[in-house]
């Protein structure tokens, strides 16, 4: 089993969450029950389960999702302001802040709700701090509130991801009534002799008998008187006689 790092999973999911919730127009999706942060928590659980080969507990997945959400909220709030300033420009942001405040005032008036005194100015300060127009302590406070909310939804996402990506149950154990006895290894059989069909038969070299003379070394005898060709003497032929080619003496058997 590999050792999984909760911090690594939280960091990766937090960076992804911060990036996604900061992109203009994409971050509107997060206003639907904070679905992007919940998906970030599921992503953290996925990383943790992959790293631990499925052995990470649900609590670890939830912790990774919570830390990832916290990181995403802390980094995401200033990053959102920065990206908004870069994408839309200062004039457009001023116009949007004024439009948002007018919209809230109109909604309060339309539904007959009371607008607390001084809240408009405070709302304008908060909106300017979170939109990138101003950088003050409210930027930090808003980032902390954002981190709290993101932590909750990240924890939910981590728990749900840990449940959805859980490992398969182990196969049922074998019945205990049949004991499994380890069998000793079988002895290796002796090497079989080569079969006759397979072996190539080579006849032994032909041996000449002791005292025999190879046919090509037989002595040539002179022709007989009647003109018949000479016949070499055989061992059982007493009538044959002739000089031996080597020593010139006649061979007598």
């Amino acid at each position: 089993m590999k050792r999984a790092s909760t911090g690594r999973a939280a960091l990766m999911s937090g960076m992804l969450t911060a990036l996604v919730v900061s992109i203009p127009y994409v971050n509107v999706i997060n206003q639907c029950c904070c679905v992007l942060v919940v998906l970030g928590g599921i992503f953290a659980a996925f990383i943790l389960r992959s790293d631990s080969e499925g052995a990470a507990s649900t609590g670890q997945c939830g912790m990774a999702g919570m830390l990832g959400g916290c990181f995403g909220g802390l980094v995401g709030a200033p990053l959102t302001a920065l990206l908004s300033l870069v994408a839309f420009g200062r004039d457009e942001l001023e116009r949007r802040v004024a439009e948002a405040i007018d919209g809230v005032t109109a909604a309060f008036t339309a539904y007959g709700l009371a607008m607390p005194p001084g809240s408009l100015e405070a709302m304008a300060a908060g909106a300017r701090a979170t939109s990138g127009l101003d950088w003050n302590r409210w930027t930090v406070i808003v980032a902390l509130f954002n981190a709290m909310a993101f932590s909750f939804f990240g924890l939910v996402g981590g728990l749900v991801g840990g449940a959805l990506l859980r490992r398969r149950a182990a196969p049922p154990p074998p019945p205990r009534s049949i004991p499994v006895v380890p069998t000793p290894p079988l002895p290796t059989p002796p090497e079989r002799p080569p079969s006759y069909e397979a072996a190539s038969y080579e006849p032994p070299p032909e041996e000449t008998g002791r005292g025999e003379i190879p046919p090509d070394e037989l002595p040539l005898l002179p022709d007989s008187a009647d003109g018949a060709p000479g016949v070499p003497p055989s061992p059982g032929d007493p009538g044959s006689a002739g000089p031996h080619p080597d020593d010139g003496s006649s061979r007598q058997s």
């Binding site: 904070c34 405070a122 979170t130």
Partner: peptide, 19 residues
Amino acid sequence: VPVGSLAAASRAGLRGTCH
């Protein structure tokens, strides 16, 4: 705390999670 910047900050902090 209806009056003050804290209420506005709480609204701004939850703006990313809710409409």
